[in-house]
């Protein structure tokens, strides 16, 4: 039981403390590529802090659903973060079948984000909502296929065990499958967190955005919570990718945690590099790429099935 409380403490610390850092690393990487200095690493911390102290402007057409969006958007990644191991630190909560709960938790946040966007009655935010729900609908099978591969390799249905000790051994026996699902999981991470090449968070044109356009009308603490929630979500998905990429342990807990943090920062750098060298895909290509990712993950599963 003491382990679990320690794990809980570490999870919360990492989630609350480190998640906004990733955005800073991504921003710095992108700035480096364009030859600028870029915002400081801690920019998102400052932004969130500033937003939490500000007043709010709310559209007259909105109802409680609009206010529920940010609340759910913060609570869901928080709870989802407790279901997965952060590197060597095991998940504080784990039970057989929690992977299904994990997937549907994010569906919950999507549900409320989309409804909150539609609540403003703006056509642009409606557009964002449509794209969000449609694209994630195609990404969901990929997540399940990835999880089945891991479940098959580990023989367990809890995320803690699937991303747990057996993963390192599985890399010896089923490297091709794991490599493929690593790619797929990374693609899912990019889609779910609205990064280039699926969504451009920094564009100035509402027509081309997905996630950012949905939260146009949020302001003040609400918007701060959305930013914090999005950062946590990136951290949660990033933790899965990093765990898949760096499954081993050195035996030393502190070193392992440092390794994990290093890994997740490295992932942020990779995301930054991708954002610098790629353009956003045409909207029609996105479903194709998502279906492609699903099929790739399905194929990796077939490699194990035979």
């Amino acid at each position: 039981m003491r382990i679990t409380i320690l794990q809980l403490f570490l999870h919360l610390l990492l989630l609350f403390g480190f998640s906004p850092l990733l955005s800073g690393v991504i921003g710095k990487t992108k700035a480096l590529f364009t030859g600028r200095v870029g915002p400081p690493f801690l920019q998102l911390y400052f932004d969130i802090w500033k937003l939490f102290g500000k007043g709010m402007v709310i559209s007259r057409t909105t109802t409680w659903i609009f206010r529920a969006g940010p609340v759910v958007g913060l609570a869901v990644p928080l709870l989802a973060g407790l279901l997965i191991p952060f590197g060597p630190v095991g998940a504080p909560i784990s039970f057989s079948g929690d992977l299904i709960f994990f997937v549907y938790l994010f569906a919950l946040s999507r549900f409320f984000t989309a409804c909150a966007a539609l609540d403003t009655g703006s056509s642009f935010e409606g557009m964002g909502a449509v794209r969000e729900v449609t694209f994630s609908c195609l990404a969901e099978p990929t997540v399940f296929f990835v999880f089945i591969v891991l479940a098959r390799l580990s023989g367990s249905f809890s995320l803690d065990a699937m991303f747990g000790q057996t993963l390192a051994a599985s890399w010896h026996t089923a490297a091709p499958s794991l490599l493929l699902i690593l790619v797929c999981l990374f693609i899912v991470t990019l889609v779910e967190n609205c990064r280039i090449p699926f969504d451009d968070p920094t564009t100035h044109l509402e027509l081309t955005m997905i996630h950012e356009v949905m939260v146009l009308d949020h302001s003040g603490p609400d918007f701060g919570m959305i930013l914090y929630g999005a950062a946590m979500k990136l951290f949660v998905f990033g933790a899965l990718v990093v765990r898949l990429f760096l499954p081993g342990t050195t035996g030393n807990m502190a070193l392992d945690i440092l390794l994990f943090i290093g890994g997740i920062l490295f992932m942020a750098v990779v995301v930054g590099v991708i954002e610098s060298v790629m353009a956003r895909l045409r909207l029609l290509r996105i479903p194709q790429l998502l279906v492609g990712a699903s099929l790739l993950s399905f194929f990796s599963l077939i490699l194990l099935l035979r």
């Binding site: 102290g53 007043g55 709010m56 709310i58 559209s59 206010r67 609340v71 009655g121 642009f124």
Partner: peptide, 27 residues
Amino acid sequence: GALLAAFSFNRWRQGRGTVAAASTWGC
């Protein structure tokens, strides 16, 4: 529980600032 926590945090932060009503941002 998590939703209630996030909600009460939201309410707490909102208590300081003011909530102004405006029309939806029409881009």
